[in-house]
Each structure stands twice: as structure tokens, then as C-alpha cells.
Amino acid sequence: MSKALTKTDFHFPGLKSVYHGKVRDVYNINDEKLIMVATDRISAFDVVLPEGIPYKGQMLNQIAAKFLDATADICPNWKLATPDPMVTVGVLCQGFPVEMIVRGYLCGSAWRAYKSGVREICGVRLPDNMRENEKFPHPIITPTTKAEMGMHDEDISKEEILARGLATPEEYEILERYTLALFERGTQIAAERGLILVDTKYEFGKHNGQIYLMDEIHTPDSSRYFYSEGYQERFEKELPQKQLSKEFVREWLMANGFQGKEGQQVPEMTPEIVNSISDRYIELFEHITGEPFVKADTDHLAERIEKNVMDYLME
């Protein structure tokens, strides 16, 4: 059986600090570079699940790298190199403490709020009489705060971001412009693959006074995709859309009584469940990139990553 990488403990030269996120481990090298290792951990409802998913880290890292390259003409981004299938090395940025979430369609948490009568999200007024999975007249930006570990992200408006000094008016204008341009590019690329980019999130930071796009983009962990074929018919019949996202993991958890609430137990993740999730991620990768997924050797994952990163750092 393929192995999954769920923990890392590297000691790279120049190491200043390590941040272990929900799914990625980030190594700070001399306050200049970040080595981001996409592990095979998987999270849902802000909880890291007990089993890793083979190849998940490789898939997310390679999708993100591909889209960072495909959008580098829109705005500068943090990526310098991908020395290993599960690793991206990039410049260290001072991150804005907000995530720029952009939505092209009314679904997910926005739909749940709308259905309950809410007509304004993050200061954005929503049209009346919309239906689930309906396309907005124009994409909307609904930012959230970037929460500490174990905390939930919270919706925040542009006005609150400015009032709290999380970004200057000039900075926010750039963040907004980049967000909409990136979403438009992602939408175009998705359309070529027979997909609809429904919503996604972007993170930005500053490096040498300039705003950079950071982290992953347009992956199934940070984005929701619908299949174009059948979208209109399903929408008109008020049927669930066929999705390419991590939603299937959340649905499996909910069907087994888990939504991340206190006192709830994560259902048993049998080898069959783990393998089926891995297979679904491979399907996601191939649809999103339009390329076959090539499995990297998983026999000695940590050793492979360490060697590849060390070789890069010594160049």
C-alpha cells in the first residue's frame, strides 16, 4: 500500500522556525525563503483527520505550482521552485491577516446564510430571489479573517478590514483587483477543462514593499468546481451539482455523524475509505490540470524530500 506523509521534522540549514498548519508544514530559512511541504494530511470542518491520504500532498502542490505559473503575468507570486513533487520553495512574505474569498455562484455557506434570510455578506448586498447554485451577476468578494490554529475564520467586510488597519485603502484596492483578475483567469482555464470555477480563496502578503500572491491557488482544497456539462439542467431542476472539490469528504463525514462539533467522533477511516479518497483526488487533479497524474515513489518520502530540498538549497 502507498504510504502517506503526515508529519515532518526537517532540519534544513538556516532554519529559523517551523509552522505546522492543518495540511502544510512551512520551514522559514534565514527569514528569506519558505519551504512549504504539502503533507498528505487532510482536514475538514477545521479538524485534521486521523489518516493521511496517499498522493494528496503531491497533487495539491503540483496543481498550485501549475496555477501560480499560469497567473504570474497578473501579479507577482511567492514561488521560486518546486524541488520535490510535495514541496514549493518561495520568498518569505509578510502575510495580510485576511483571506480573499471570491464567489461566482451562490452555494455552500453563502447559500445557507441566504436561505436563512441573510441578504448581505461581508458588506456585499445580494440580489433577492436567487436560487442555490445560481450565478451572481458579477463575482463577489467575501473576505474572512485568517484564524489562529484551532479557531474558525470569520467573515469580515472591506470597511472592517480598513477600520482595523489590516490593509490600507491602497493595498486593499490592489488585493481586490488581483483577486478578480486571478478568478477570471482561473475561470477561463476551468472552462477549457469543461469545469466551472465556483468559488476560491487567495492569500496575499508583502515582500520588499510589493504585494505578492502566496500559498496555494485553484486547488480542490481551496476551491470549488462544478462540471459545466449538465450544470444548467441540474440548476433548473434544483438538483445538486456534480462537483470537483473536497465536498465529498465533508459529505462522507456528515453521513457518518461528524461535523466537527464538540463530542462528535471522526468515523473510522478504513484503508478502503482512504484509498477511495486518494482516487477521487487523482480524478480532481486530472480534470483540473488536463494532465495524467504521475505517482511519485512513496517508499521513503521524508528522505526523498530532504535530499531534493538540500540539493536545491546547495545550488
Rank of each mutant, 00 (worst) to 15 (best):
Y281V: 08
Y105I: 04
T6S: 12
Y114H: 11
C93M: 11
K206A: 05
V89I: 15
T179F: 02
M86P: 00
E286V: 01
L162I: 15
T71C: 15
P85W: 10
R250Q: 10
D299G: 03
R125L: 13
T200I: 05
E51Y: 06
D128V: 08
P54H: 11
T71M: 09
L182K: 06
Y55R: 07
K135P: 05
Y227T: 02
Y114N: 12
Y312Q: 07
P292S: 09
I288L: 04
E262S: 12
P137T: 02
C122H: 04
A167T: 08
V274F: 01
E170N: 10
P83T: 08
Y212K: 03
A191L: 06
P50F: 10
D299A: 14
T71V: 13
V26T: 15
F183D: 06
L244F: 04
H287N: 14
P85K: 13
C122E: 09
R164E: 11
V18K: 14
M254I: 08
G209N: 09
T289A: 10
Q188E: 15
R234C: 06
V309S: 09
V37S: 06
L49R: 11
A147V: 06
R185H: 04
F136P: 08
N208E: 15
S228Y: 03
F12Y: 14
S222Y: 04
P143F: 03
Y212Q: 07
E251D: 15
P139F: 02
A296S: 14
M254T: 12
E176F: 03
E236N: 15
L244T: 05
A190F: 10
A72F: 00
S228R: 13
Y19C: 02
K158A: 12
E134K: 08
K7I: 10
L313M: 11
L34H: 04
L80C: 09
L180P: 01
I305F: 01
H152Y: 05
E286M: 03
N133R: 08
M1K: 12
P139M: 04
E236P: 00
G263C: 07
S2L: 11
C122K: 05
G21Q: 07
R304W: 00
K33R: 13
D279R: 13
V98Q: 02
A191Q: 13
F235D: 03
M86Q: 14
S17Q: 12
E32D: 13
K135D: 00
E247Q: 14
K115M: 07
I189K: 09
Q58S: 11
E154G: 00
T298E: 03
Q58R: 03
A190T: 05
A65E: 10
Q259M: 13
E315W: 01
T289K: 11
A190V: 06
E229I: 00
T179D: 02
K66Y: 14
R224W: 05
Y225G: 02
L180W: 01
E251H: 13
L195V: 08
M314S: 14
I288K: 08
D155I: 00
Y114K: 10
E132A: 10
G205V: 04
R304G: 14
S116P: 00
Y202N: 08
